[in-house]
Design a binder for these strands. Structure first.
Length: 418
RNA sequence: GUGGCUGUAGCUCAGUGGUAGAGCCCCGGAUUGUGAUUCCGGUUGUCGCGGGUUCAAGCCCCGUCAGCCACCCCA
């Protein structure tokens, strides 16, 4: 009995439609990044497990796809790109003019339970500016993130970018006598505040010597709490993007390493999922690579954004169009006389050499079947090669009209009409 | 890691403890050089898997696996 195989939990097959959809998202990521002068890079998919332990602590190992290789090295499928970037940037820091504007599109792995918008394997767009302290770098990344969304067809009624400033919270904590490790605990409380009952938050804050009222008061101060936020907002507004921006000091991001402005893109109305997030991490490159360099960046995963595209009318329409366009051919060669197959192959090749996408039936099939196949292939033209060769028929499948032509004129005729 | 729901044809799903079903898709034909529609015919099932109750289980019970959803977490 044949053994039935299926994908491992949390892993996906990409059939052609799915693959077209994935590549459509990749193309948007890539083209917008290039519009901002970013260059593409890539790192290894397998890294030493210690690289991630160094950045995130020992407990991270539970969520890694990690194992021992044949040389008894502890290795992990990469769960994120930032540590790799930090290593690469530090290792050859003298080779590149600053700031680095680097982006990457790659596959990542996390050993955790599969659910909507989250698998054990996913693709992620990473975009970072390294070696630039100016707050305008943060604004540049936020503008890029907004452009990604609009390029996919989202409008201001679909999403917001919520921006905050980690350093404003650190100042706030210090002013209120919270130091050292308590600061990390405090930031975690703020991060989870939205989804924690108020009494519980009050209790957690009071053990740190604070009150909920005081914290809420700080959150409502918005831009006044941070000159950085004011500068970012001013820059985004000069770009005509202020309608997408919302200052929300309640965002702090769970990660310990953020040191300045942080931001998240949220969808509006479809469940308020975060589709992208990032911020400034000025100390991480020194921690991993030993070379101090300022940096900021953000990431967007393929799963949540693709779900959101499919659920939103305008982006979904653009995606559908792209999938069809990606898979259709220009012309379908119909072989009406099997004895002419050499001539048919020559014509097919001639069209392909001219850059047209061309299909033809590989096995002898009745003519009506070939026309049906031509129709389904999305071809605009059917080229009929039969006993009358070198006379050819070019049939326009959308207009249902046809003309006769010859191999010498064929390419020109098709160029004229398409 | 915790909990809820679901699992029947390639897909979407019906199925009252008593012979396994429909629609769609796919393939062939009607139709030997022109696409649609229609009509005819055809393939596809260890009913997720294992055990139990019963004269009899797709249906009830237990377990298990997988999927979806929520929580935890989220680099």
């Amino acid at each position: 009995m044949a053994q039935r195989f299926q994908t491992l939990p949390g892993f996906r097959d990409f059939y052609p439609d799915d693959c077209s959809a994935r590549n459509y998202v990749f193309e948007k990521w890539r083209s917008v990044a290039r519009r901002y002068g970013f260059v593409e890079y890539e790192g290894p998919i397998l890294e030493p497990t210690d690289l991630y332990r160094r950045k995130s602590g020992a407990e991270i190992v539970n969520q890694l796809f990690c194992f021992q290789d044949k040389g008894e090295r502890d290795v992990s499928m990469r769960p994120e790109l930032t540590p790799t970037l930090a290593r690469m940037a530090a290792a050859r820091q003298r080779d590149f003019r600053k700031p680095l504007r680097w982006f990457s599109i790659g596959q990542f792995f996390r050993y955790e339970k599969h659910q909507k918008g989250r698998g054990r394997e996913f693709y992620q767009f990473n975009c970072d500016i390294v070696g630039e302290e100016s707050i305008l770098a943060d604004a540049e990344l936020m503008a890029l993130a907004i452009d990604l969304m609009t390029a996919l067809g989202f409008s201001e009624s679909d999403f917001r970018i919520r921006v905050s400033d980690r350093s404003a919270w650190i100042d706030f904590a210090t002013r209120n006598g919270i130091e050292g490790e308590d600061q990390t605990t405090f930031l975690q409380v703020i991060d989870r505040m939205e989804r924690t009952p108020a009494e519980k938050v009050e209790e957690q804050l009071s053990s740190l010597g604070l009150t909920l009222a005081k914290v809420r008061d700080f959150i409502t101060s918005g831009c006044d709490a941070s000159p950085s936020l004011r500068a970012i907002l001013d820059d985004l507004s000069a770009r005509g993007m202020e309608r997408f921006v919302e200052v929300d000091l309640g965002i702090v991001r769970g990660l310990a390493y953020y040191t300045g402005p942080v931001f998240e893109i949220f969808d509006i109305g479809k469940g308020m999922r975060a589709v992208a997030g990032g911020g400034r991490y000025d100390q991480l490159i020194e921690l991993i690579g030993g070379v101090p360099m300022a940096a900021c960046g953000f990431a967007m995963g393929d799963m949540v954004i693709t779900d959101l595209i499919r659920e939103t009318a305008c982006p979904a329409g653009l995606l559908e169009k792209a999938i069809i366009e990606n898979q259709r051919v220009d012309a379908y060669l119909i072989l009406a006389d099997p004895d002419r197959h050499r001539e048919g192959s020559a014509v097919t090749q001639q069209l392909r050499d001219a850059g047209f996408r061309v299909l033809s039936s590989l096995s002898a099939t009745k003519v009506p079947k070939q026309f049906q196949a031509a129709e389904l292939s999305g071809a605009k033209f059917a080229i009929v090669v039969g006993s009358e060769f070198p006379e050819l028929t070019i049939r326009n499948l959308t207009e249902r009209s046809e003309i006769t032509s010859s191999p010498a004129q064929l390419v020109e005729e098709l160029r004229k009409k398409s």
